[in-house]
Simulated assay, not measured.
Amino acid sequence: MKQRTIAKAVEIVGIGLHKGVPVKMRLEPLEANQGIIFYRSDEALTIPLKIENVVDTKMATVIGKDGIVISTIEHLLSAVYAYGIDNLRVVLDNDEVPVLDGSSSGYCMLIDEVGIKELSESKKVIKIKKEVEVRTEDGKRVSLKPSNHIVYDFSIDFENPVIGQQNYHFDYSIDEYKENISKARTFGFLHEVQYLRSIGLAQGGSMENAIVVDDDKILNPEGLRYENEFVRHKILDAIGDMSLLGYTLIGEYDAHAGSHHLNHLLTKKVYESEENYEILDLDEAQKESYVFQKAYALVDAN
């Protein structure tokens, strides 16, 4: 199986979640072995997607270099990662990726519109060989476990009656991602939104790009897209955060009450020991190559 990029460039303008200002974003194809690269056109600065470039994980995954940052990258990366795109240049004229509708479905539509191009170099993946876990004292945890498949298991437990306990098991394929994960929107509580705005954040947040929960009700007039949309969005975020590994994952991600911060610690911990992983060339790994061919079968390379 070969590396992938997009077949041609595409450009959109959207609103940044926190500053609430328009952001122009252009996705450009790259040649093999270039990876995912962000470029701030207003600052003339390139920031490669690497674990060491993560500078903040409180409200979103933020990368930066020389004091210049790019925020809220996880929804875009979730779609890029889900489509198996290995090489891509993301050009932005501000410090946030457009939030669109709070999910990654808009990015899936962009990729479908321009198409996928297969390159001449073979695709490389990271296969988990040994379980790696990050756990907090209050019971939150994230882990990666060995598997010949791509699996995401996530559970959440909120005291709020609208959310409560939810769990979801996701066996990866592009088709399943588009149907069951990509449409799940980010969410927040009304009191949190009010606080964030008071400190200059979430200026672009609205019920057009997030689920807003107030005590025992959802304020969005259209309601939920899925009964368990909250936990599905957590998987969407996790897929985007795992893109920081630098290669498409073969393994099982399992989490309870995971977060961007724990996901970042998990990707760092994987690389602490070569016993935890191996990098495979899919042209040489027959069994894993079959798994990927099946998972990506519903996207035609142009």
Rank of each mutant, 00 (worst) to 15 (best):
V213Q: 05
L224C: 09
S243E: 09
G246D: 13
L219R: 03
M207E: 14
G205D: 02
L236I: 13
A238Y: 12
R225D: 05
R232C: 12
L219M: 11
L244P: 07
I218H: 10
E208R: 02
T248V: 00
M242A: 01
M207D: 05
Y226M: 03
A210P: 04
E208W: 01
F230P: 03
D215I: 06
I235V: 15
M242I: 14
V213Y: 09
L219G: 00
Q203V: 00
Y247V: 03
G204V: 11
G240A: 05
A210N: 05
E229K: 09
H233T: 05
E222I: 11
E222V: 11
E208N: 14
Y226R: 03
T248K: 09
P221S: 14
A202E: 10
N209Y: 04
L224P: 12
H233Y: 10
V213N: 05
V231P: 04
Y253C: 08
E227W: 03
L245S: 05
D214V: 00
I211A: 10
T248A: 06
G205W: 07
L236A: 12
R232I: 09
Q203A: 10
V231S: 05
L224I: 08
S243L: 12
I218E: 07
Y253A: 05
I239R: 11
L249G: 06
V231M: 11
L201T: 02
Y253G: 08
Y247Q: 05
V231Y: 08
D214G: 00
M242F: 01
A210F: 13
F230V: 04
L249K: 06
P221F: 04
S206F: 07
R232L: 14
G223W: 03
E229R: 04
I239D: 09
L244K: 04
R225I: 14
D216P: 00
F230E: 03
Y253D: 07
E222C: 00
V213D: 01
I250D: 02
E227H: 09
D237C: 06
L219S: 01
D241H: 11
A238N: 11
D214E: 15
F230T: 04
D216I: 01
E252R: 15
E208D: 15
E229Q: 13
I211T: 09
D216R: 04
I239F: 08
E208K: 12
T248W: 00
E208I: 00
E252N: 13
D237K: 08
G240Y: 02
Q203W: 01
D214N: 15
L245G: 05
L224F: 09
M242R: 00
N209A: 00
I211R: 09
S243F: 09
D241R: 09
M207P: 01
L201P: 02
G251T: 12
F230A: 04
N209I: 03
D216W: 02
E222H: 14
L219K: 04
D237A: 07
V212W: 05
G205C: 14
I218M: 08
N228V: 12
R232N: 12
S206H: 06
K217M: 13
V212C: 14
G223M: 05
E227C: 00
G246C: 13
I250K: 11
E222W: 13
I235L: 11
G251Y: 12
S243H: 08
H233A: 06
E229T: 02
L224R: 12
K234I: 04
D237I: 06
S243K: 15
L201M: 15
